[in-house]
């Protein structure tokens, strides 16, 4: 860890000013010299590993009063960026009307981490690629642009099969973001020139030729909230992993369905653990929409979701696994009692 300046932001303006002032415009956000601090479970970890080296930390926890809402108003949902994972996971109405959100949070990390971690920090968490997290490896395009990718032909069991490029195959590791993607959430952003919102799906960027640029947030911008329109009681989050708890997904599926009289009117399929960004499987959704559900349909949707998948030495299994996870999650969503 390197010395840094610690500041507490007592209002959003102060936060974005402090962040913006320290951030060099041409730096990607994740390498910005000023970083917001929420729960710190990603940021402090990566600072100790010397992967992130901010010279200024802006503690945004004092903004919690205004930014930690959990507001399901019966039709729409608003979640503040500083709401704790644990609080959202056990919220009655979230469990009832947005089970995919509740479960994506409940099945993530550990109780201690969920008590600390915030929703905003959660969607901004960074890849678990071992080569990225260990600075003694030179070759990592994400950490060290242009240096190559050690994972490509290295130990890559945990890596992505969807959305990969020849520059980077790092998995987006989080769970909650898949629920947001599936529910077509909107993200609210506060910056120096005021607030803006955009579809959550536009927040993360695929690695392409610049894996160091992970999101479309600009330096100085903060996530203030997420909103979801409608209620999604028929939704599930299925997560396959090596351990029963406290472990990232090898493959996960966030499914939300609207089924009326046996016909799927609306289907949302998002994938985790297998892709470089929170992944929306639109091809699968298109196949499902308007159809009556059966196991064959689930299988075809699962195949469609992974049609473009590319496996490497240790992670090819994720393609078959991912398909089974999608098919099973669809079955669960269709048969769940609501």
């Amino acid at each position: 860890m390197r010395p840094f300046l610690y500041q507490r932001a007592t209002d959003p303006d102060m936060a974005v000013q402090a962040l913006g002032a320290a951030a060099a415009a041409n730096n990607p956000l994740t390498q910005a010299t000023a970083q917001p601090l929420a729960g710190g479970t990603t940021l402090i970890d990566l600072m100790k590993l010397d992967v992130m080296r901010p010279t200024a930390i802006v503690d945004i926890n004092p903004l919690a009063q205004g930014w930690s809402a959990i507001e399901p108003d019966g039709e729409n949902l608003r979640l503040g960026a500083l709401a704790k994972m644990s609080d959202v996971a056990v919220h009655d109405e979230i469990q009832r009307n947005y089970p995919v959100i509740a479960n994506s949070l409940k099945l993530a990390a550990s109780a201690q981490l969920r008590n600390m971690a915030t929703l905003g920090g959660n969607v901004m968490q960074r890849t678990r690629c071992s080569y990225f997290r260990d600075v003694s490896y030179e070759n990592c395009n994400k950490r060290n642009p242009g240096s190559g990718c050690a994972a490509m032909d290295g130990v890559n069991r945990m890596h992505a099969v969807l959305g990969v490029s020849d520059q980077c195959i790092a998995t987006y590791p989080g769970d909650f973001a898949q629920a947001l993607i599936a529910l077509d959430a909107t993200v609210e952003i506060t910056g120096r020139s005021g607030s803006r919102s955009m579809p959550f799906a536009e927040l993360h960027k695929m690695p392409g030729s610049s894996p160091d640029i992970e999101t479309t947030l600009q330096p100085g911008e903060l996530i203030s909230a997420f909103t979801v329109s409608g209620r999604w009681p028929r939704s599930v989050y299925l997560k396959a992993r090596d351990r029963q708890s406290y472990e990232f997904a090898l493959s996960s599926a966030a499914i939300a369905l609207d089924v009326q009289d046996g016909t799927i009117r609306e289907a949302r399929v998002a994938l985790g653990g297998v892709a470089t960004v929170p992944w929306r499987a639109r091809e699968a959704e298109a196949l499902l929409k308007g159809q009556r559900f059966d196991d064959g349909l689930a299988q075809r949707a699962a195949d469609a979701a992974f049609a473009d998948a590319r496996g490497r030495r240790h992670n090819s299994f994720k393609i078959a696994l991912g398909k089974r996870v999608v098919a099973r999650a669809l079955q669960q969503a269709v048969t769940m009692e609501i």
């Binding site: 678990r128 071992s130 997290r133 290295g154 130990v155 090596d242 351990r243 708890s245 406290y246 472990e247």
Partner: peptide, 21 residues
């Protein structure tokens, strides 16, 4: 990592041991 004879998962997040569950 066989290319360079180095350990890759040298931490307790990636070197898996059981949790209570």
């Amino acid at each position: 990592d066989e290319r360079n004879a180095r350990y890759v998962n040298d931490n307790l997040a990636d070197y898996l041991v059981p949790v209570n569950a």
